[in-house]
């Protein structure tokens, strides 16, 4: 997380773009359709969605509400089963996955929600450290150290043992980000992480995401309506009526 490190990143972006593209994409959706309900009541949400997100990319997903952004995000996050079409996430075909496979994929993804959804009965530190339960290969000592590092890096080093009720909205969202990053995810999915925040905390959160994600070379797919944060994107995917409408960048 040092300055020279970021410099090499810039070089990577310019010099090695061909080789990056040659890598397998982290997310690859091909002809994905999705519908809620059965029979006559069936309502199709996604129509023939194609999307690729490569390593290290920040992709924003925008569009009016009801356009299917969140549904697409839940499919990619292995929270719903893919029924029609093909979807590979982290090189795993989710269209063939069992529930157990889905749970395993989830463990490699960092989720950030509109609501922070921290456990109110555990402190910031405990909330973050809980994530390491999913990664028993990390020793307890190491987990404790990384928890403190993460919370410090999101600016909460002074509030490790605060319960969520005593943190502001922005601080809670930052704990949630630290939690999402705790177990070194290989993909970050965020659903309007700034919606519940004022403009300054929203900007802080996005900057933080951008910085931490770049350092860990981990792609971000973010659903957002917030025009103030569009500048962080490598690409902006616009959705409308369940279809990918346009791609910018």
């Amino acid at each position: 997380m040092s300055i020279p490190h970021i410099t090499t990143q810039t070089n990577l972006a310019t010099d090695f773009v061909p080789s990056l593209l040659a890598e397998r994409p982290v997310i690859s959706a091909r002809h994905v359709n999705f519908a809620f309900g059965e029979g006559d009541l069936q309502k199709q949400i996604l129509f023939d969605v194609n999307l690729e997100v490569g390593s290290g990319e920040i992709v924003l997903l925008t569009g009016p509400s009801g356009s299917g952004k969140t549904t697409l995000l839940t499919l990619i996050g292995a929270l719903r089963k893919v029924r029609d079409g093909e979807l590979d996430v982290l090189s795993r075909p989710l269209h063939h996955a069992t529930l157990e496979d889905l749970v395993n994929v989830r463990r490699e993804i960092g989720f950030i929600f509109q609501q922070h959804n921290l456990l109110p009965f555990m402190t910031a530190r405990q909330n973050v450290q809980l994530m390491f339960h999913l990664h028993p290969e990390v020793s307890t000592h190491e987990a404790a150290k990384r928890t403190v590092d993460l919370l410090t890096s999101v600016g909460l080093g002074e509030r490790l043992d605060y319960y969520p009720a005593r943190l502001s909205g922005g601080q809670k969202q930052r704990v949630a980000i630290a939690r999402a990053l705790a177990a070194s995810p290989r993909l970050i999915l965020a659903d309007e992480p700034t919606a519940a925040l004022d403009s300054q905390s929203g900007r802080d959160v996005v900057n933080l995401l951008q910085e931490l994600a770049r350092n860990q070379k981990c792609p971000i797919l973010m659903v957002t309506h917030d025009p103030r944060i569009l500048d962080v994107a490598d690409r902006i995917v616009n959705m409308e009526d369940g279809r990918v409408h346009s791609v910018e960048g």
Binding site: V103, N117, L119, H133, L134
Partner: peptide, 18 residues
């Protein structure tokens, strides 16, 4: 009261069993 938090844990990869 904690159903959303439980659902969040599930989304992050905690099993039903846990």
């Amino acid at each position: 009261n904690h159903l959303p938090q439980y659902a969040t844990l599930k989304a992050m990869g905690f099993s039903d069993r846990y």
